[in-house]
Computed example of a mutant assay.
Amino acid sequence: MSAGPSWLLTGLVLQATPEPAELVPDTPDESLVTPGTIGFLVTFFVAVALVLLVRDMNRRVRRVRVRSDLADARLREKLAEERERSAEEAGRPAAATEDPPGPDRRDDPDDGPVRRH
C-alpha cells in the first residue's frame, strides 16, 4: 500500500466528521449559560453554612468528650472509694490500684487542645 491512498482516506474521514456546532445547532451561546450572580451567592451561602455547621459539630464533639472524661473520672473515684471501704471492712489495707489500661483520649495528637467555653 502506498502513502497516497492512506493520506487520501484520512482526509476523507476528517472531512466527513461534522463540527460539534453542526451536530446540535440549537445550543445557546456559552456566555449566556453561566450561573451568574445568583449562582455565586447561593454557592457562597452554602459554603458559609457548611463552615458554621462544621465548627458547631466540633464544639459539640469536644463537649461530649469532656463530659465523658468527667464521668470516667467520677466512676474511677467511686470504685476506688468502694475498694477502700471494702478493704477497711475486711480489716486489711487498701491495695494501691492504677488506672485501667487503655488509650487516653487527651493524648491523641489528632484531637488538638480541648478548649472550654
Rank of each mutant, 00 (worst) to 15 (best):
D56H: 11
V33M: 15
A80G: 07
R63I: 02
E77R: 15
G102C: 00
E89N: 07
D111I: 06
D26L: 09
G112R: 08
D99H: 06
V13N: 08
A95H: 02
E30F: 14
D107H: 02
A95E: 15
S68P: 00
L12V: 15
F44T: 06
V66H: 01
M57H: 15
E88I: 08
D69Q: 09
R85T: 10
R105Q: 05
R55S: 07
E88R: 12
V66D: 03
S31W: 02
L14W: 02
L52V: 15
T27K: 14
D110F: 04
F44Y: 11
V114Y: 08
E30W: 12
A49Q: 02
V48S: 10
E22W: 09
Q15T: 06
A96M: 13
N58P: 00
G4C: 05
V46S: 09
D26E: 15
D72R: 08
L41K: 09
D29M: 10
R105L: 12
F44Q: 12
S6Q: 14
D56L: 15
V64R: 11
I38C: 02
D107V: 00
L75S: 01
A94L: 01
P20W: 03
L8A: 15
G102P: 01
G112P: 04
A71H: 10
D26T: 08
L9Q: 13
G102K: 01
P18F: 10
P100C: 05
A73E: 10
T34A: 14
L9V: 14
T17S: 14
R92Y: 07
R74W: 08
R115D: 02
